Amino acid sequence: MEKYAVVVAGGSGLRMGTTIPKQFLLVRDKPLLWYTLNAFLDSFADMQIILVLPEQHIQTGQDILRSTYDPDRIWMTVGGETRFHSVRNGLQHIKKHSIVFVHDGVRCLLTPQLIRRCYDAAVDKGNAIPATTAVDTIRIDTVNGNEQIDRNKVRIIQTPQTFFSDIIINAFEQDFHESFTDEASVVERLGVKINLIEGESTNIKITRPLDLLIAEKVLEEREMGL
């Protein structure tokens, strides 16, 4: 089956305290986005990637694209006002029945193995959303203050969120709603049951300076085969 990854990379460097967008920050002399793109290229020989970037960063994206080992399988499009609109712009380039992965460009530590597991589960059940179990004590705000909830029932959602193309393309024909925080929430609004699979503890979203140090260590250990 055809495979497309819509990689959305529209973040800023505000929480990093930098003027450089997060996806272009360097880890081990490579931009975060470079690792993300190569993970998808490594996952399947027929994977096609649609990279969605803000218009002002298209040239930088082109430079990173050309530095991957198979740039012919990647093309680019311009993002929109919100993540929802950026994903919609990427989906417009998919014309064939396929499996579609939507991924945060700054989750640069995902592995080809996770991508393949998402694919297998989506083929079987129509969608696959990687998630991990909460390890901290969880409390929720209530009208009376706050209360503890069972952390074993809490799932931390990751990407790539993976769907049959007809499901996700149809879902993104809806008008934007403020409750759309990820692709699963868009699809779920149409009444589709969301299927969670086990994610990866290292598949973090690079947001803070500490995350860069974690990414550096994880990538170093992978290079050493640890």
Rank of each mutant, 00 (worst) to 15 (best):
D70P: 00
Q161L: 06
E173R: 13
F180I: 05
I156W: 11
I74T: 03
R83S: 09
N38T: 02
V143M: 14
D120S: 10
K205V: 08
R83E: 11
L41I: 00
I64Q: 01
S201A: 15
L14H: 11
D175R: 14
G79F: 02
D182C: 13
Q23G: 04
L41F: 01
T36D: 06
V100W: 00
H103N: 08
C118W: 06
T132G: 12
V87F: 04
L91F: 08
R139Q: 12
F40R: 04
D141P: 09
V100T: 06
V8F: 04
T18P: 07
S201N: 14
V143D: 15
I74D: 04
E198L: 11
D175T: 07
E183S: 05
E173V: 01
Q56N: 12
R15H: 14
N203L: 04
E188M: 13
V7R: 02
T36Y: 04
Q158A: 04
T82G: 08
M16E: 03
Q48F: 05
I157W: 10
L210S: 15
T82A: 09
Y4W: 07
W34C: 02
I206C: 03
T159S: 10
R208C: 11
I64R: 05
D175A: 14
P130H: 12
I99Q: 00
R28C: 10
R116T: 10
P71G: 07
N170V: 03
V186Q: 09
D166K: 06
G126R: 10
A128N: 08
F176N: 09
R151G: 03
V100E: 01
I49H: 02
T159E: 00
I138E: 06
